[in-house]
Design a protein around this nucleic acid. Structure first.
Length: 99
DNA sequence: CTACCGGCGACCT
DNA sequence: TAGGTCGCCGGTA
């Protein structure tokens, strides 16, 4: 199975209302520093509907980018009950999902 | 808080 | 087949 497939599959483990980080996701599939690779892969996301790539944020607390616009991403996250302010996740420990 | 560069793999010449 | 490029990053200075 290709790495991207594993990533998408892992991402599906993140429940609604929770998020994960590019780094955590990368490690979850066996990569130490593949955050950027993950971002590149998410950007080309071949399954935009079944893959909730908006639930992936940056480890430094910022929301990060999004293929359809950061604003949309932020909106969707907020819509799932995640509190965000100025592009920053507020209740981090409470919102982050650990694999 | 801003700036910089290292590291990784899919995609594109 | 073999590089070069690029991105929704991350950690450090």
């Amino acid at each position: 199975m290709s790495l991207e497939k594993k990533i998408y599959k892992k991402l599906l483990e993140v429940p609604k209302g929770q998020i994960t980080t590019y780094g955590e996701l990368a490690k979850a599939v066996g990569l130490k520093n593949g955050q950027r690779a993950v971002g590149r892969i998410m950007n080309k996301n071949p399954y935009p509907v079944i893959i909730p790539c908006h639930r992936v944020v940056m480890s430094n607390g910022k929301v990060g980018g999004y293929a359809y616009g950061e604003h949309i991403k932020t909106k969707m996250l907020h819509d799932e009950g995640i509190k965000i302010e100025n592009g920053k996740i507020l209740d981090w420990e409470k919102t982050i999902h650990r694999f």
